[in-house]
Design a protein around this nucleic acid. Structure first.
Lengths: 343, 343
DNA sequence: CTAGTCTAGGAAAGAGTTTTCCCGTGGTCC
DNA sequence: GGACCACGGGAAAACTCTTTCCTAGACTAG
């Protein structure tokens, strides 16, 4: 009681039983322990303030209660929403969540993954779109393989293609739905903030939007597609570039909400009104951004639920041989940031 | 290489040295190892793909590389901003961040704290205002004491009064500064969304605002102070209640930005314009909310830096006997959500 | 009544590191 | 040349659990 730690041995001694018995009582193993001893042990543990040493348990069991969560940037509301879902699920199960932020560096990602491996983490949830760079995908797949071989489980959010269970939004369909709704509003000329060229999610959304336009017999002018960072500032900057050369578009589609936010700020700074001068639409429906004015027309994704589902894929049930893929449909939400074109 | 894990013993064998030597090479202990053996060991480790078992290390060293971070709700941008700072600092040091979300329950908070204790976490950063409930504060202080006794270090953000290093915003001064600026704009009648009654941060901001008003010879009518949840929806709901009974205020101060966001939404729904019909001010200057329109007048806190500082307090240097307190000044940022009153 | 089965308890063998302690070698100083 | 020291290396203890294996006793069946 006095100094430092109370060990199970001390509890056993205090209760007058063997170490084995004490262990069986405390963690409730398969083996039975008589009511009498059971009480003695719990009472002793209580009195001494015993707290099991988690690393010793991990070492002995060769399996820990750690679950990893890898995101690009936790202060981005997209990631923090998903993180909230993952946390909820892990905490319900009494597991411990380890948060790793990669800052979009695949190197950091691999490093953290191996740290998790060192900790014998039970599972890891990878969030954030993969790049289309083959080399780094291969390296990541290798790390995942190692993680797996040690008995760890892996689930991904929004990055199909990796050898792991995945919950992914139907980016293509969502963007196509959105495009059709915008066309229905009367728009014919579109500009797109397409994000980075090497980001799968961004590409799928671009493709989906594009194919719906084609389906409606509309062209997308090359100069109306602007690439840039997948962030608020990326959206701002891309919009400035777009408007600098000028555009004939009546509607601007940013492939995610944070970019759309940047776009709206840029337009405001340029003295343009949304949606009067230009309609703006996004993708994700980030909860924190719902209070923007004008409210953003976007494609709603149940981000928190997606996090929960990913955690469930990684933690519940038995591991499967074939990677499972849960596809989440996005739902178009029309708000004030888009309106029929005035010209 | 084939099955499961590579242990240090295997590395030692492969290199033809003792376990002790291998250990000394890999972790770079105080003891010297000859260049010759050093190379042999690193080469073997490399070849075999050795990765140290973190729990075994923790057990042997009786100190882990885990750092805890406790927040109320990670999807709240206030917390995720701070979390970003904490992550940055911990990852720089090669430490592993454990994220716990308490959902504002002190019980959950204690539970997570003891889990961290079980893991021999090196430090923990507690974020989020303490309640003014004495009983739960006492329990928390007790947990902190236990954590400390095991060699763990504790730092807090925004919750002075606990026996731990703290970085805290100067809520009183910030709110008072804001009040004076608003008075200078010409406002005389204020309404306040004061948050929960038992939240220290909320109370300090209310007090600071209030004392600046008194200093200017202004009264704050009782019916113009509304209490409610510290969240966006709390702000919305409080505003609805305030407006339902009617107010003579020309300016509404919400004690944090997310509440202010809710307030603006409520006013919009009521058909009132900000700032024409009513000015609105907040506190925190949440980065994600900077794109609201009208842009929010608020008190800027360097949230990410505060997170870093807290992590630094908990990790760098030697533990001190006396709790250190770092006070962060907030800076008033005037934006479009406040304007001189029109009546 | 004996052989066989089941049960609860304990001793001890791990799990993979770190670290202490011991030993031999080689150098330095009178 | 002997006493002392510094240094690099290894054997083994320590860290705290879980779990296997063993044993003694109780019970059941024939």
């Amino acid at each position: 009681m006095e100094s430092g730690y109370v060990t199970l041995e001390q509890v056993a001694q205090h209760a007058g039983v063997s170490l084995a018995t004490a262990s069986r009582v405390i963690n409730g193993s398969t083996r039975q322990v008589s009511q009498r001893l059971r009480e003695k042990v719990t009472k002793s543990a209580q009195e001494l303030g015993y707290l099991a040493n988690a690393s010793a348990q991990t070492l002995a069991r060769n399996s820990s209660s750690l679950v990893g969560l890898l995101v690009h940037d936790i202060s981005d509301p997209y990631f923090s929403s998903i993180a909230a879902g993952v946390t909820r699920h892990t905490e319900e199960q009494g597991l411990v969540l380890v948060l790793g932020t990669t800052g979009r560096s695949t190197q950091t990602e691999s490093r953290i993954l191996s740290t998790l491996r060192a900790h014998r983490a039970r599972a890891v949830v990878l969030v954030g779109s993969r790049s289309t760079d083959e080399e780094s995908n291969r390296r990541l797949a290798q790390e995942i393989h190692l993680f797996r071989r040690q008995g760890g489980r892996v689930a991904c959010v929004s990055q199909e293609g990796l050898p792991a269970d995945t919950v992914t939004p139907d980016n293509h369909a969502g963007a196509a739905d959105l495009a059709r709704r915008l066309i229905a509003q009367g728009h014919r000329e579109f500009a797109i903030l397409a994000g980075p060229t090497d980001l799968q999610t961004a590409r799928e959304r671009l493709d989906g939007f594009h194919s719906a336009l084609s389906g409606a017999g509309l062209q997308l002018a090359h100069h109306n597609v602007v690439h840039g960072a997948f962030t608020r500032d990326g959206g701002y900057e891309s919009t400035r570039r777009l408007m600098a050369v000028g555009t004939d578009a009546t509607c601007l589609f940013a492939v995610n909400d944070v970019m759309a936010t940047g776009a709206m700020a840029a337009l405001r700074d340029l003295g343009l009104r949304v949606p009067t001068d230009l309609s703006v639409a996004g993708f994700d429906d980030i909860p924190t951004l719902r209070d923007l004015t004008p409210a953003l027309t976007t494609v709603r994704l149940p981000l928190e639920r997606m996090g929960e589902q990913a955690a469930a894929l990684a933690l519940d049930g038995e591991p499967t041989d074939q990677p499972r893929v849960v596809t989440v449909k996005g739902e178009v939400v029309e708000r004030e940031s888009t309106a029929p074109p005035t010209r």
